[in-house]
Amino acid sequence: MDERLSRREFILLTAAGLAGFFALWTLLAASGLVPKLFLPSPLAVAEKFADLTQNPFVGFTLQQHLLSSFGRFGAGFVLAAVIGVPLGLAMGWFRWLDGVVSPLFDALRFVAPIAWVPFAALWFGTGIGGPILIIFSGAFPPCVINAYRGAKYVEPRFIEAARTLGASHWQMITEVLLPASVPSIVAGLRISAGLAWQSLVGAELIVASSGIGYLMVKGQGSISTATVMSGMIAIGLVGFVIDLLLRQLEARIHRRRGR
């Protein structure tokens, strides 16, 4: 909107914003308005964080907890993408399928991933299936919606052109619709990855042996707010990195398509 900032100004303001954030936090912790036990200072949390990466808590170090969380996340996310994207594309292309799936889909959209916890335990147990179902239910909708939009709003002239050239249904899907929907699909995957990662904490409520959500619950159970906050930060950081990577993928695809 307004003019671009100079590099110096940008860095200055960013630093000021961050400093303000941490200053507010420190002040609040120091003021005693919230007891220290429940709002440790940033420094105390940083110390705990470092400690957790060195010394195991509830059996494992922070990195190991993250790793096992990551495995669950990956499985749920990949499953959602593998099922959701083709389904969305097909819904965009076949009108009857759209009519069949859309109402179901709209109804289930409001049901929280965590509401699936009891069924997840009932149907799949705790091995790996239960947690995956919960992550899947978080990650699935954006995959479908964006693939659907991508396929539905392909420029009509492309379709006309392909049709006059005598493309078959199959060719139409693989050679016209799919490539045209890629940007939308990738955007959907990015949202989906974010939601999958967020559903993880819910998923780890039903497995009690490892994972970052487990670490947080146990931290809470032993009255260690710093451990809980370290878990939050770890989740936040990894979520941020996942988003960053997918954003780069998105930018690369846009560039290749000459936009």
Binding site: V117, A121, L122, W123, G125, T126, G127, G130, L205, I206
Partner: peptide, 18 residues
């Protein structure tokens, strides 16, 4: 396999988790 409380543990028996 371990569970945070009895109820999820019982629920998981339905799926033959243990």
């Amino acid at each position: 396999s371990t569970f945070p409380a009895g109820v999820p543990q019982i629920a998981a028996s339905a799926s033959k988790s243990w």
